[in-house]
């Protein structure tokens, strides 16, 4: 109920009620898109969007850019971590190792 499932908007079916067909893991159903449209992103622009669907309502467009950035941070974190670990190891007395 609270987790939400990502799906991709396939077509707009009822502009009046802001309904569209969304493909959620191969299952297509009509979803309310009112929460993911605004002036800058009108209903017609939603086709192809990835959205997070909660109980029949698309509640958020999934920001691919932000997703990529989070992943990049995680990537970096790994590298920084390795560096720090290496630094720690070299700073510790030889042979002592770090816990």
């Amino acid at each position: 109920m609270c987790l939400g499932i990502p799906g991709q908007v396939v077509e707009i079916t009822d502009p009046q009620r802001k309904l569209g067909l969304v493909d959620v893991a191969g299952v297509k159903r009509e979803i309310n898109l009112a929460c993911v449209v605004d002036e800058a992103h009108p209903l017609e622009a939603c086709v192809g969007d990835w959205v997070l669907v909660h109980v029949g309502f698309a509640m958020s467009r999934i920001d691919a850019q932000q997703a990529a950035e989070t992943l990049a941070i995680l990537e970096q974190l790994g590298e920084v971590q390795e560096e720090i670990a290496a630094m720690r190891a070299s700073a510790a007395s030889p042979g002592a190792g770090t816990p």
Binding site: A34, C35, V37, D38, L52, M59, S60, I62, D63, A64, Q65, Q66, A67, E69, T70
Partner: peptide, 15 residues
Amino acid sequence: NQYARIVPEEGNAVA
């Protein structure tokens, strides 16, 4: 905000 790919700072105005 670790979940910026879904969570906008200002929330969802329509909702």
